[in-house]
Structure formats: structure tokens, C-alpha cells
């Protein structure tokens, strides 16, 4: 077992003094880097790092049948993989509840913000486009929710749209860009004792009591998820919503600049 070199007391003492391990403000992101097109076989892809957290967001688009209850809409399928190479604490085997929650929270952020416009994904009477978004965690150091959401949004915003001609899918050559119907990002806050921090590192997450993810676009909130045993007050929630609108502007600008 790898030793975790910080103790709960150490993190708690720092926070009580208004400090974080890496010298950040409580409401600052780590250095964010994004590189798009890293998997050319995928229609869209982005490698994103938040400090030492490294994830890939990748988009594949394929023809498929619509859901029976939504014959005039395309499909979105989002999955997250906590790859065992990313951390000694991630296991091989079937997806863990943590991985499933991560995938579903990102899915809701994408879906609710119309980043995928389902009505625009109809091919013909029988076929629609299915959009597969995969979030692959390659190195874990906290805040997979925001890194995963950011990588998905970056991949969707730099994605090509395949064509369907003569019952064949054309994936290469002169293709149009995929047109997202919206742009949302998320801000995830970790609560340790009474302190609340944005973009928690792995060391901070190891001792967090509660976590909340707020996905929003410029105007409205699109998805939220509270996690873990701890709690937030209503006043904290209101404050975090304000902060999320404010902080997420930086993230959305980075993604818009990729287009």
C-alpha cells in the first residue's frame, strides 16, 4: 500500500489557518491544461489535466435505433472508467459505484444543458445517431467530476460529425463539425470539517465529509449532486451556487476558445 503522506490533522490545521497544501485559495482551481484530438480515431477527444489529475474525454458517434419512447431523438450514453492504472485504490473488475455515479453525474450535466441536441440527431425513420461519451481517468489526484465534465465538453466542442450515406457511415474526410446545443461545466466543492474548498486534491478528498457538484451554463443550473455522509447548510448551498456561476466562466471560456 502506498502511504498517504498527509494526515487528517495536517489538512485540518492548514484549512483552519485558511491555507491549502499547494498554497491555493479555497475557491481556486489548480492549473488546467487541455489538449484536443489526442485520439484521432474518436470523433472528438481531449486530454485534460487539473493539477495531477489526468483524464481523457472521448466521443464516438454511431448510427443506432432510437429509444422506443423517443423515436425522434438521438441517444446519449456516458460512461466513466476509473482505470486501475490511475491509482492504487482503483480496482480491476466491474465498474464500481463511484465510477457509475461519476458517469451519471456527467451524463446529466451534458443532457440537461442540451450539449447534445437529441432532435438534431435523427438520420431517417429508423435510425438516429448515438453519441457515446467516455471519460477515462488515467491519473487520480481529486476532483474527477469537474475534470471529467470539462474533458467531455472539450471533446464534444471539437468533435466531427460522421455522415450516413448509402447505408454506410463515413467517418473520415471532409466532415462537418458536431454542433453542441449548449455548453455546461461543473464546479465541485469538498467540505472538510467546516471548510469548503473548490477543486479538492486527492489528499483533501481523502478526508472530505461531503461533496457537491453544481453544473451550470451561463444562465441556469443544469445538474447537481451531493455526495458522501456529511452535509451542507442551505446558506452554504446558496453561496456555492453563486460561486459556481462565477468560477465556471473561466472553464467555459477555455472550452469556447478550443472551437
Amino acid at each position: 500500500m502506498q502511504i498517504r503522506t498527509v494526515t487528517e490533522d495536517f489538512i485540518a490545521d492548514l484549512l483552519a489557518n485558511g491555507k491549502r497544501e499547494d498554497g491555493r485559495d479555497f475557491m481556486s482551481y489548480r492549473d488546467i491544461k487541455v489538449q484536443t484530438g489526442i485520439v484521432p480515431n474518436a470523433e472528438g477527444s481531449a486530454m485534460v489535466t487539473f493539477g495531477d489529475t489526468k483524464v481523457i474525454g472521448a466521443v464516438k458517434i454511431s448510427p443506432g435505433e432510437p429509444m422506443p419512447d423517443k423515436p425522434d431523438e438521438g441517444n446519449l450514453m456516458t460512461g466513466a472508467e476509473l482505470h486501475p492504472m490511475a491509482s492504487e485504490s482503483f480496482d480491476t473488475g466491474p465498474p464500481s459505484p463511484d465510477a457509475i455515479e461519476l458517469g451519471r453525474v456527467i451524463d446529466r450535466g451534458i443532457r440537461a444543458s442540451n450539449m447534445i441536441n437529441p432532435k438534431a440527431l435523427v438520420i431517417n425513420d429508423e435510425l438516429v445517431w448515438s453519441v457515446f461519451v467516455d471519460v477515462y481517468v488515467l491519473n487520480y489526484d481529486g476532483n474527477l467530476f469537474d475534470a471529467g465534465m470539462f474533458a467531455s465538453a472539450a471533446a464534444l466542442n471539437t468533435c466531427r460529425m460522421p455522415k450516413y450515406e448509402d447505408e454506410k457511415v463515413i467517418r473520415e474526410g471532409n466532415l462537418e463539425k458536431f454542433k453542441p446545443g449548449g455548453l455546461a461545466t461543473s464546479c465541485t466543492f469538498a467540505k472538510l470539517g467546516k471548510s469548503i474548498v473548490l477543486d479538492a486534491s486527492g489528499n483533501e478528498e481523502a478526508f472530505m465529509d461531503a461533496r457537491i457538484t453544481i453544473s451550470n451554463d451561463e444562465a441556469v443550473i443544469r445538474a447537481m449532486q451531493k455526495g458522501l455522509h456529511g452535509s451542507f447548510t442551505n446558506a452554504e448551498l446558496e453561496n456555492l451556487i453563486d460561486i459556481s456561476f462565477n468560477k465556471s466562466k473561466e472553464l467555459r471560456k477555455m472550452i469556447s476558445d478550443l472551437r
Binding site: 485520439v39 480515431n41 474518436a42 477527444s45 481523457i56 472521448a58 466521443v59 464516438k60 454511431s62 460512461g79 472508467e81 486501475p84 480491476t92 466491474p94 448515438s130 457515446f132 467516455d134 477515462y136 467517418r171 473520415e172
Partner: peptide, 17 residues
């Protein structure tokens, strides 16, 4: 553990794992 990512091929989206 050797695996191929579901997005690794130019064709269809694969299964993970």
C-alpha cells in the same frame, strides 16, 4: 491487464473492459 478503450477504433464504439 491489457485492454482496449471503447473509443480506440475508427469504427463502432466498443465495450470497455
Amino acid at each position: 491487464r491489457y485492454t482496449m478503450a471503447p473509443f480506440s477504433s475508427l469504427e463502432e464504439h466498443g465495450r470497455s473492459g
